[in-house]
Simulated scan of single mutants.
Amino acid sequence: MRRIRTAPRIPLLAAAALLALAVAPAPAAAHSAPGHSAPGHSAPAHGHGHGDGPEAPREFVALREVAPTIRQEIRYHTPHNFVGEPIDGYREPMCLVTKDTAQALAKAQRSLLKRGYTLKVYDCYRPQRAVDHFVRWAQDLDDEKMKAEFYPRVEKNRLFEDGYIAEKSGHSRGSTVDLTLAELPAAPTRPYVPGEPLTPCYAPKGERFPDNSVDTGTGFDCFDTLAHTDDPRVTGEQRANRHLLKTTLERQGFTNLPEEWWHFTHEPETFPDTYFDFPVERGSLSSHH
């Protein structure tokens, strides 16, 4: 899910619109609460996007405009996440990141396409209001409707203590992404139907919620130690897939969060100390054009 380096009181640790084919720059279509963060400051408004929120700095871009073949399955715009409802601030199913991050992802994608794979992002920039939504949800101990899939072996009253939820996320700085690999050709993942039976995120791939990605041993946003990138229980093809994702991204300047195989930060970060709160929508970039 989300790991974050955040407020001193919180320990560090472990995190639907579908997009079209990799070759088609269609409208964009994912967990994480943590994002490897360090204490910093909130960003001031940079003008206004649809009249009701701060605007993104010019250093932010829509990933689809830089790397149109990268698949996008933005889970927090949908109810298929650990909260069980669309998350505040995700007004459109699209990936926004800093330009340096987008360009690095484009380079990684070109390398993977030659090998028959594509990147698929679940989450990119995350507004502070979304992190606040996670915190409110974590404080409501009676709401466990998604527990059976995303945190079946973790008690909800331990989510803060164990580092799965925190008050700040590195995703809010714009250089962190949650992503995986899919082997081409990859059919779209079917939409989640609220209320459908849930299966643990660490179950065998054929039993988990269907995903067109490669098998990495767990689903995305799995609050479980099995999601640790180098967990020794993950072997064979699953380990090879994690290794391919990690090494490909490391070559382009990304660093993996050890507690989440899907979580990567491009370094040096464009905004290492600033947590933004503009909404995820094209309007946040309106003044850039």
Results as ranks from 00 to 15, higher is better:
Arg2Tyr: 11
Arg2Ser: 09
Ile4Tyr: 11
Arg9Cys: 09
Ile10Thr: 05
Pro11Met: 08
Leu13Asn: 14
Ala15Gly: 12
Ala15Thr: 10
Ala22Pro: 12
Val23Cys: 06
Ala24Arg: 06
Pro25Asn: 07
Ala26Tyr: 07
Pro27Cys: 04
Ala30Lys: 01
Ser32Trp: 10
Ala33Gln: 14
His46Ala: 11
Gly47Ala: 04
Gly51Tyr: 12
Arg58Asn: 05
Phe60Asp: 02
Phe60Met: 13
Ala62Met: 11
Glu65Lys: 10
Ile70Asp: 02
Ile70Gly: 01
Gln72Glu: 15
Arg75Met: 15
His77Glu: 13
Pro79Thr: 07
Phe82Asn: 02
Gly84Asp: 01
Thr98Gly: 01
Asp100Leu: 08
Gln103Leu: 14
Leu105Trp: 06
Leu112His: 12
Lys114Asp: 08
Gly116Ile: 05
Tyr117Met: 11
Thr118Phe: 01
Arg126Cys: 08
Pro127Trp: 01
Arg129Phe: 00
Val131Phe: 04
Arg136Gln: 08
Arg136Val: 02
Asp140Glu: 13
Asp142His: 15
Glu155Phe: 07
Glu161Gln: 11
Gly163Glu: 07
Tyr164Phe: 15
Ser172Tyr: 01
Ser175Asp: 10
Thr176Asn: 06
Val177Ser: 07
Thr180Ser: 11
Thr180Lys: 08
Leu181Phe: 14
Ala182Glu: 10
Ala186His: 04
Pro191Gln: 05
Glu196Met: 11
Leu198Lys: 08
Leu198Arg: 14
Tyr202Asp: 09
Ala203Gln: 02
Arg208Phe: 02
Asp211Pro: 01
Asn212Ile: 00
Asp215Asn: 15
Phe220Val: 06
Phe223Ser: 07
Leu226Ser: 15
Leu226Tyr: 10
His228Lys: 14
Asp231Asn: 15
Gly236Asn: 13
Glu237Val: 13
Asn241Ile: 12
Arg242Gln: 05
Leu244Gly: 03
Lys246Glu: 12
Gln252Phe: 13
Gly253Gln: 02
Asn256Val: 08
Glu260Cys: 10
Glu260Ser: 15
Phe264Lys: 01
Thr274Val: 12
Tyr275Glu: 04
His288Ile: 08
His289Asn: 07
